[in-house]
Amino acid sequence: MVTGTTFNHEGRCMTTPPFYAAQTDTLDRILGLKPGSLAFDTRHQRAKVVDATQASEDLLLGAPIEGLPSSERLLVALLACALTPSSELREEYVQRLHAMNVPAPIIESVSQGKIDQLQDARLKQILSFTHTLITDPIKADKQALLTLKASGLTTPQITALAQLIAFVSYQVRVSAGLKALKAYGAQS
């Protein structure tokens, strides 16, 4: 836990809450948002959102979830970013997967949205569910959940998976908005 003090662009002092740590905030890091810039200072006026966004990512991608290995969850996040698309977050999740020693051909296939080539039937099932929910959420149906159950996932695991896919849909849009705010700040 880190506390810090920053100043917004009007020179007002803002004390950041105890959870925020610049080195561990994914979006600030990958977008290169720095205190004193319009995008950073605007973003951090909603400190609770910054904290809950990072805490959600940490729970969904970092923390242990019984029966859903971290590498599998990162592949879900990678596919979601590849399809949306979000180049910054895609690169981030590719790097994390390499760091976990996930075989490079699997990372490469998922990163290109090519899930038909994968051998692992369960992973394919999970990624095909991800594909529908990212690209055409209205097509999600009860049968898709029953298929996941038949692949051996429990309801708590399906809950975590649905939250993960939905969270990444959120994260890519926050990222896109902040990136645009950064570009706007640089030219104004």
Binding site: L38, T42, Q45, L133, P137, Q163, S169, V174, G177
Partner: peptide, 27 residues
Amino acid sequence: SEAEILDLIHSVAIFAWANRLMLNLGE
């Protein structure tokens, strides 16, 4: 204002999240 634009970005993004749960877990 920039603060309003941030709130708009967040509102749109949080409904990418909310809609996907509502559409995907029940009816």
